[in-house]
Amino acid sequence: MGAGYIIKGEVIIINRELTELDRFVMDFLQVLKKHSDYLIVSGFVSISTGRTRGTEDVDILVPVMSKSQFTNLFAELRENGFWCYQSENPDEVYDYIKEMVSVRFARVKEMYPNIEFIPITPAKKAKYFEFTHPQKMRVHNFEFKVPPIEFEILYKELVLAGDKDLKDAKHLRTIFSDLIKKEKFKEYEAVVRMEL
């Protein structure tokens, strides 16, 4: 029967097949990674580890980049079949990024799921902390980065704290019960609380 996941080195390997949602995120990251580092946060972390619920968006933290870098990324996303909710014009979309406002991308002729592209800088202390402390996760040949599991749990319990978030946290606490560490919760709690 096997296990739901195994640990290999520093990577958590989830023992399942890829879904269409994974393929959507994988295609987006294939382009994004050429231009920037990233971190996937929130719902997708729980869903990719087996939480049985739908989602409309996949949240990805991306450090603010220069206008020319963003213009190149934007062009390549369009070439690869993505459209941006905010505008067809990268200059207009960059205005959002500059103001630290999220923008959204979906596949051409689709609305959902979408990628919520969340700009961050070191001034966003908690988000920058998780961004700089990634946990690698893999499903088949799809490897991606998420926050430390304890951080993700605390963020959902203390900051987001909606019904769906508390269930996501419960899921993570249960499925990773033999992986999560008490001392990590202590270490991360002060950082997470900066978001409150």
């Binding site: 029967m1 996941y5 399942r16 097949e17 879904t19 087996g50 899921h171 499925i175």
Partner: peptide
């Protein structure tokens, strides 16, 4: 949620339902 996660941990076949 807790029950499902506990079962999923032992039985990855449940991922098929989730997919």
């Amino acid at each position: 949620v807790e029950l499902y996660a506990r079962e999923l941990k032992k039985n990855p076949a449940l991922f098929r339902q989730q997919k």
